[in-house]
Design a binder for these strands. Structure first.
Lengths: 189, 189
DNA sequence: CTAAACATACCTACCGCGCGGTATCTTTCG
DNA sequence: CGAAAGATACCGCGCGGTAGGTATGTTTAG
């Protein structure tokens, strides 16, 4: 509630975080279309004016949300690659794992539903594509093989399937697909 | 323009078709969000009232649009299966081809952009999922193998990738993926 | 055969609402 | 005292949807 609380201690960083987090929560509960400026501000205990102080437009809010998500994915994937003994296909494996069981992205995380907007929103698509492009360039020595490309595409397809079926838990079949894809990153051809 | 033409010959079927077709065209030009009741009605040379006569709600219009699309895909896939000499994986091949080069669905068709809404809209997701489920049940003897499942997922991923990159033509890499996936339906394992 | 009776197809005009966004004021922090 | 942080009030717009009217078709009773 936007109580008449001018008295509250001013912690802009926390408010910004709260806005982002609650926006994500709303997207998870009421769908992506539920992300309205009013609702987000209210959920974060701030008025619309306050929100617009941090994000100049709704678009900026959404982009901030997505950038935040991308940063987490980035860190997660970096860590996974570093822990992987086999260099070949390490990025692809990290990516597949991130999609299936990742904390940032994976199924059964609120973010999975959220990242649906990336399909819709053009500017978000750009962010995502740029990220992927940069990643591929960075790992071109280990993950440029076409069979690995197919594996990544299949992971995307699984993600899409999971989202569209609206499941809340990962079924046995999806787990099987996961294992199969990981295995496929080890054998070439 | 909705000229004051009460006098026009009444051809409900044609009007219905026009509404559907123009809705698709609008989605292709101005994005899915461009599908507004006003715009569609105007483009079809009909007023909003006229549109609401044929479709009880905007939702009904969208669903009609999608059902129409599904019907075409259905026919296309049936034809492809019938023409396929090898029974094993025939549905998967037909599906992959439909996604990549199909007239109803494929890249470079207006419909590709349109079908983006299936990701967003819950009721449309149901229609799609039911269709796929029925298809899988129907071809379970020939297309139930997990490796074929992965192939279909990869096709979905390629579709998603194509959509999100917003390309207008199919690149050489996508063609390579296409060939690879088709080839993969022939060898088991 | 015809005209009443009904149904279908479509139009004009209107509405409420919720949205994103702005302008301006107050409070607190450095 | 600024300037940043946040509150309050307000606005215009475009959207989906409704109400009620008017033509055109189709059926049926006499």
């Amino acid at each position: 509630m936007p109580a008449s609380a001018y008295t509250r201690a001013k912690q802009p960083e926390q408010v910004r975080r709260a806005l982002l987090d609650h926006a994500a929560a709303i997207a998870m509960d009421h769908g992506v279309s539920g992300i309205t400026v009013q609702a987000v501000a209210a959920a974060a205990g701030v008025t619309k004016g306050g929100l617009f102080h941090h994000f100049g437009s709704k678009q900026a809010l959404i982009e901030g949300l997505f950038a935040d998500l991308l940063a987490r994915v980035d860190a997660e994937i970096d860590a996974a690659i570093e822990a992987d003994p086999k260099p070949r296909g390490s990025f692809t494996r990290a990516y597949v794992n991130a999609v299936f069981t990742g904390k940032a992205f994976g199924f059964a995380t609120p973010w999975a539903t959220l990242s649906m907007v990336v399909v819709t929103d053009p500017s978000l698509r750009r962010l995502w594509n740029d990220w992927m492009k940069a990643r591929l360039k960075r790992h071109r020595t280990n993950d440029a093989a076409p069979e690995l490309h197919v594996v990544r595409l299949a992971a995307d397809g699984a993600w899409l399937s999971y989202i569209t079926t609206g499941q809340t838990r990962m079924g046995a079949d999806l787990r099987a697909v996961h294992d199969r894809l990981i295995a496929q990153t080890y054998r070439r051809g």
